[in-house]
Design a binder for these strands. Structure first.
Length: 663
RNA sequence: GGCUAGGUAGCUCAGCUGGUUAGAGCGUGGCACUCAUAAUGCCGAGGUCGUGGGUUCGAGUCCCACCCUAGCCA
């Protein structure tokens, strides 16, 4: 009896391009869906554009276009990029659609009628120039805790504290750069707290990963707060039916977009709405998300569904964040890799493979290491996997292009084929990395088999042509099993392999019987090696280029240079600066005087390494008041464009004395 | 700042409920082979398991503190 399954991945937000973070999630989901389909399950994959909210409204304003134009354009780009990565949605819709609107209103009305919606006034920053209330992230000001300037309205990036916008010192609207005023406005709240017993039971029911459950326990302990689900006009979204001028907060209608997307599919293909959204038994419902949006999917969403009389997700699967070369994606580091940038340079399947090789069921972060990616893709996909076909095919071709009628080692074949249940289970439980590891172990065994039986040696004896063909047939059958296991990960390559072998990989269990006495097509390379240079170019040299560009090619005269009073100084003392993870407080001896300099070199040097050594300093730099004191100068060091490149202090050759002038 | 997770060979990762000489792939050194996209096979070198304490006959595995990385704080 096939399972009926509805799967989603998180809706991409329609104000920017897809990047690697979107892609790893889509790939994770797509692999899972393809596996289900191969196993004969009735599995639907729905997704949509998340098209509402202030950022989209403002962005459209900035571009001087209608928000509808912006989201339509972005949706096209997103569709193109997902297709480029072979993401096989059954439906890709939008929250800005009749279906989403209908369900958003319907769910709201059901929640309201059931008494789960309350109304109360909220005091909020209002930008009189722009004529709008300001979300926290559109406010900047001085952190009330550490006094760091230019921080967001809800949290400080310097000290990490969180607060409310009202606490911010000297707040400014980033929309108009004016000082906001405070105004009251009625908002609608969803009474999340009413669902605490239900949610506790739901969480205990095994629908979530351990780490996510642990996080939820924290939220339960803190007490579930009512959730503000409305925003005042102007807002790009869905108007609240019984509160003109109020709109649903984008996070309220976004998950409902899952239902809207499904509905669009259902209208075209026919299915029971109730089976999918009323009953928790008729079908399974899974959401693949990033760990950052667990809160919305594991608390609000089940509560909203339950409160509106709909089913809750069977499970929510969160994955970790993608880091690039060990650090988080960053535009300034040039590691913000967009889907488009990748697709312009490289084929999608090696990346799908690499992601699969690193994804597990947990929420640990996944590192995309450029060097590792090249090594892994080339070695596994070309050196091991494709190599099996590539080395066996010529023997069949020379022997007439037809597989032998029997396998010389049926036991070995069965060892391979009998792994299918186990591999399927690993995919099913999202332990892709384990699945890939086991598949590659089999690939190693297949190569060893060919090595041990040396068909190239036997081929010298015309009398053993049958043996040669049998060995190659065995090898190609082992290859077929491996390609079948990898078909969810490598849809195109497996299709090409299927064409080569004259078969298909539509059914997971088809490898139970080997392929015998059948013609095969001439072998064409199924994958080519990645060019390390193309991979390296994924990272924009933007940061480095920007640094160079900042120093314009205009030359400086000797007069300009001589304005700098560069001196040799001895580090008399060096100590950590309490409260800062970047700075060291250096006491520098210039021979005639001592200076205190705060230097951001803590990442590269420990205080005890510095005491006593000679450095180069700018002695006539205007003193600068910093949070931790006044810095009277600057020590010179070399560094690359990226943080990871390190920091290297300049020093002079032996014999130099403190106070000597550098010129 | 609080919380959640991660920190194991040059790189990317396995190591289940604590138990003999800590594993794999890649990379690296040597050998073999030449069917295959310099692909493959065999052999080897490489780790005080983030740091410091503690519990235990015994800890990568449990406890405490600290450091680093990522996320969340609605």
């Amino acid at each position: 009896m096939p399972r009926k399954i509805l799967v989603t991945s998180a809706l991409p937000y329609a104000n920017g391009p897809l990047h690697f973070g979107h892609i790893i999630e889509a790939v994770q989901t797509d692999i899972w869906v393809r596996l289900q389909k191969m196993r004969g399950n009735d599995c639907l994959y729905c997704c949509a554009e998340d098209a509402h909210g202030t950022p989209i409204m403002i962005r459209a304003q900035q571009e001087g276009i209608a928000p509808e134009t912006l989201i339509a354009r972005t949706a096209e780009e997103h569709r193109r990029d997902y297709a480029g990565f072979l993401i096989g949605f059954d439906q890709f819709h939008s929250t800005h659609s009749a279906q989403s609107r209908r369900f958003t209103v319907e769910l709201y009305e059901r929640l309201r009628d059931a008494g789960y919606i309350v109304r109360r006034a909220v005091r909020q920053a209002y930008d009189e120039q722009a004529g709008m209330f300001l979300p926290d992230r559109y406010l900047r000001g001085t952190c009330p805790r550490c006094k760091a300037p230019d921080q967001y309205g809800d949290s400080c990036e310097v000290c990490g504290s969180t607060y409310t916008p009202a606490d911010l010192i000297d707040p400014l609207s980033t929309v108009s750069n004016s000082t906001p005023v405070w105004r009251d406005s009625d908002h609608l709240f969803f009474r999340l707290g009413a669902f605490e017993p239900m949610l506790r039971a739901y969480v205990a029911g095994g629908s979530l990963q351990g780490a996510v459950g642990a996080k939820l326990a924290e939220w339960f302990d803190a007490g579930l707060q009512d959730w503000d689900i409305s925003r005042d006009a102007p807002y790009f979204g869905i108007e609240v039916p019984d509160a003109p001028g109020k709109y649903f907060y984008v996070w309220f209608d976004a998950p409902i977009g899952y239902i809207g997307s499904f509905e669009a599919w259902r209208a075209a293909h026919g299915a029971s709405f109730d089976d999918y959204w009323k009953s928790e038994h008729a079908t399974e419902l899974y959401h693949f998300i990033g760990k950052d949006i667990s809160y919305f999917h594991t608390l609000f969403w089940p509560a909203v569904l339950h409160g509106a009389g709909l089913r809750r997700p069977t499970a929510v699967y969160a994955h970790g964040f993608l880091t690039i070369n060990g650090a988080k994606m960053s535009k300034s580091r040039g590691t913000f890799i967009t889907a488009q940038r990748y697709l312009e340079r490289l084929p999608p399947e090696p990346l799908r493979y690499y992601f699969a090789a690193k994804l597990g069921s947990g929420i640990e972060d996944i590192d995309f290491s450029l060097d590792d990616f090249v090594a892994r893709a080339n070695s596994d996909l070309v050196g091991k996997l494709v190599n099996i076909a590539s080395r066996c095919a010529p023997f069949i071709e020379r022997g007439g292009g037809r597989l032998a009628a029997a396998l010389p080692d049926p036991a070995l074949y069965q060892q391979f084929a009998s792994q299918r249940e186990r591999i399927a289970q690993l995919f099913e439980t999202r332990e892709y990395s384990s699945a890939i590891r086991e598949i590659m172990e089999l690939a190693d065994r297949a190569n060893r088999y060919v090595d041990q039986h040396k068909p190239w040696a036997l081929a010298k004896d015309p009398g053993r042509a049958g043996d040669v063909r049998a060995i190659a047939t065995e090898g190609l059958n082992l290859f077929r099993v491996l390609m079948s296991y990898l078909a969810p990960v490598l849809p195109q390559m497996s299709q090409a392999a299927a064409a080569f072998l004259g078969t298909d990989f539509r059914a997971w269990d088809a490898v139970a019987t080997p392929l015998l006495d059948a013609p095969i097509a001439p072998y064409k390379p199924l994958a080519t090696r990645l060019d390390p240079k193309a991979v390296a170019s994924l990272i924009e040299p933007a940061a480095a280029a920007a640094a160079v560009a900042a120093a314009p090619d205009a030359t400086v005269g000797i007069d300009d240079f001589s304005k700098l009073d560069l001196r040799i100084a001895r580090v008399a003392n060096a100590e950590l600066v309490e409260g800062s993870d970047k700075l060291l407080r250096l006491t520098l001896d210039l021979g005639t005087e001592q200076r205190t300099v705060l230097s951001g070199i803590r990442a590269a040097y420990r205080p005890e390494q510095l005491t006593g050594r000679l450095v180069v300093m700018i002695a006539n730099l205007a003193p600068r008041k910093m949070r931790f004191g006044v810095s009277q100068g600057m020590v010179l060091s070399a560094s690359g464009a990226a943080d990871g490149d390190g920091i290297f202090l300049l020093s002079a050759d032996a014999g130099v004395r403190p106070g000597m002038k550098v010129s």
